[in-house]
Design a binder for these strands. Structure first.
Lengths: 224, 224
DNA sequence: GTCGACGAAATTGATAACAAAATTGCTTGC
DNA sequence: GCAAGCAATTTTGTTATCAATTTCGTCGAC
């Protein structure tokens, strides 16, 4: 009951926000695409007012930009900004992993280990998309284990801005193998309940992540 | 021109959000106070729709809570949550101070030194409210110097949630003196352009801040 | 006197209509 | 053929209205 909250039908406003956020994150709405209120309202089956507030919320989240009298567009995250986001994410992930190490229960540890197992299996069968997805779940799981709501919320909004870069790093040569080892080290440290070691392991992992993103950006620029 | 943006009259929606945010932060609206849409609309001189979207934005910022069919209230930040917020803030401040040390220009350094001077003068004349205000400016200045927009934005929303605790720690015995020394150390490290040293200095400072907040919370609980 | 049911008032949620601004396309003049 | 200006369309911004829900007060039963 602590977190459940007997499901009183959510207002459509919330639905509209989630619909749009998901649409942007999943790529249904492309960067710079105009988001016309009435179109989206019809798409969701709600009214303009709700779409309007949803767009205002998403603007604050950094997913859309609006100009007065000119409506909203999907915001394009620049390369420089992507780096900033990873840096901010890193700062918070370090915090989170410390708490995860301190607060993990036996069940938490088991679930974390299971996720590592799944990552390994995805890696072994060379299914890098599945690896990337499970990777995301691993980090999410860490956030949950940390029981640090504030950090979790901030990381959530940061992550949704990163989709454009998220999964591509994993295709870099050798990255997946390194990533797997890094995650294992994090898992071991959390299992040992050692915050300092967990932070060190996470720090090593994040260095790898940043390098990966930088390479993705560099190669994308080379393409053009 | 990079950041200026020829001031096209802001939509009332934005005004409403700022008005409410400021009202909550400055204490015009108290924790748990109901925020009735039409009242606020009349107060600002706008319509309900704008207030509605403003409230939705502020909910995402964590400043208000809304229940379906029951409107919005000013959110009361619990003690436990206050600690979380300081922790998250800390993680980001450490990031920021590193970048500040790396990116500070001579002018930046001068402005930082001037702020330290003002803090010292406020301390000497025992004007702790002014000290606290300048303290806030110092941290804001660091964020600006860091030129790390992402971290800056996140810190902005975290700070607005902390007002209830912000200034009270400074009245603890000895805290002001320690705080001043800590800030000077940070300033010196930034002036030296040494990110590691700056981070260490900031870390020491933040430990002091967290202890201060914890004491404020403890003594507030003792009061009741 | 207390508790619950009922009803009125207040407030939120949803929809429609209107006004203002921007965009588009067309016409006209050169 | 091209550009400037004008008109039509599209889209946003604002306001009004109505329905649904909650809240509050009153009345009555026990």
């Amino acid at each position: 009951m602590a977190t459940a909250e007997t499901k009183t039908k959510q207002p459509e406003r919330v639905d509209a926000t989630n619909f749009l956020r998901e649409g942007i994150v999943k790529g249904r709405f492309l960067p710079n695409e105009r988001l016309i209120e009435i179109e989206i309202a019809r798409l969701i089956g709600t009214n303009r007012a709700n779409v309007r507030t949803a767009l205002a919320c998403l603007e604050q989240e950094g997913l859309v930009v609006t100009e007065p009298n000119r409506g909203a567009r999907v915001r394009l995250i620049s390369d420089a900004e992507a780096i900033e986001i990873v840096q901010a994410r890193s700062a918070l992930e370090l915090l989170v992993v410390r708490f995860a190490a301190m607060r993990a229960t036996p069940e938490d540890r088991a679930e974390l280990a299971a996720l590592i197992g799944e990552m390994k299996s995805a890696y072994d069968s060379n299914d890098l998309m599945r690896y990337s997805a499970t990777n995301g779940l691993f980090h999410k799981k860490l956030q949950k284990i940390s029981r640090h709501e504030t950090a979790r919320k901030l990381l959530g909004t940061l992550r949704s801005q990163m989709v454009r870069f998220q999964y591509r790093a994993i295709f870099l040569p050798n990255r997946a193998a390194k990533s797997l080892a890094e995650h294992e080290a994090i898992m071991k440290a959390v299992e040992a309940g050692d915050p300092d070691r967990a932070e060190r392991a996470m720090r090593r992992h994040l260095i790898g992540v940043i390098e990966g993103i930088e390479q993705v950006i560099a190669s994308a620029q080379a393409e053009v």
